[in-house]
């Protein structure tokens, strides 16, 4: 539900989703995290172990086996490329860093890659796979769309009782609805407070709240 003092996004507050919908949505995130882990613990680990077996073969190749050694080097490089592709897929399903280290480090990594000036402040607390997943993709999508010359943006993440509370400064109000689409199915809300600045009409601070574990 989008609420706040800005016109436009907040005109038609949505009803909170039914409990069954929330549970279903939450399970989707758990499933995504599980798939990512399965890629890591299954296929990826087996392929990594294969490179070790190839190394052994390389070591045991005959002294004049330069051609064979080159061939093994190529195979190992190819397996590295396969793993990089699997990592790319895993990150799109559910970023491993988000799973392992949480929202702060994962969003900091996103910010690090972007042209726009972004600061991420996070306490290091964990909020569960569903809340973290939804928040990550909602915010990462917004940050990625920021132009290089954008106003400095500050993302703050903390826990407020049993809610994940995330605020994004200097966000353009029209993005609230996009975020709401991702947050709402988990029972989350998006609230906006206008920035009082005549030079930047439509700028606001958005506070996202998502119920969490």
């Amino acid at each position: 539900m989008v609420s706040g003092s800005t016109n436009g996004a907040g005109d038609c507050p949505r009803e909170p989703p039914a409990e069954a919908c929330r549970r279903k949505e939450s399970n989707q995130w758990l499933r995504r995290r599980l798939l990512q882990r399965q890629l890591h613990d299954g296929a990826a680990l087996r392929i990594s172990a294969l490179t070790l077996r190839l190394g052994l073969l390389w070591h045991r190749s005959p002294p004049d086996g330069q051609a064979m050694q080159n061939c093994i080097d190529e195979l190992q490089n190819e397996l590295h490329t396969v793993l990089e592709e699997l990592r790319d897929i895993a990150a799109k399903i559910y970023p491993p860093l988000l799973d392992e280290a949480g929202l702060g480090p994962a969003l900091r990594e996103v910010a690090h890659q972007l042209e726009a000036p972004i600061t991420v402040v996070a306490s290091g607390e964990r909020f569960g796979a569903a809340a973290e997943g939804a928040a990550y993709f909602a915010v990462a999508q917004y940050l990625a769309a920021l132009p290089a010359g954008a106003q400095p943006t500050k993302v703050m993440i903390r826990r407020d009782n049993d809610e994940l509370m995330l605020s994004v400064s200097d966000i353009n109000a029209c993005h609230a609805e996009l975020m709401d689409d991702q947050i709402w199915p988990l029972g989350g809300t998006v609230e906006m407070v206008d920035v009082v600045d005549g030079d930047r009409p439509g700028a606001a601070t958005i506070t996202v709240r998502i119920p969490c574990e």
């Binding site: 990594s48 294969l50 490179t51 070790l52 077996r53 190394g55 390389w58 190992q76 590295h80 793993l83």
Partner: peptide
């Protein structure tokens, strides 16, 4: 190091 990279004897 990445796990698959130490499979190369030279790298290891």
């Amino acid at each position: 190091r990445l796990k698959e990279k130490v499979g190369s004897v030279d790298v290891l």
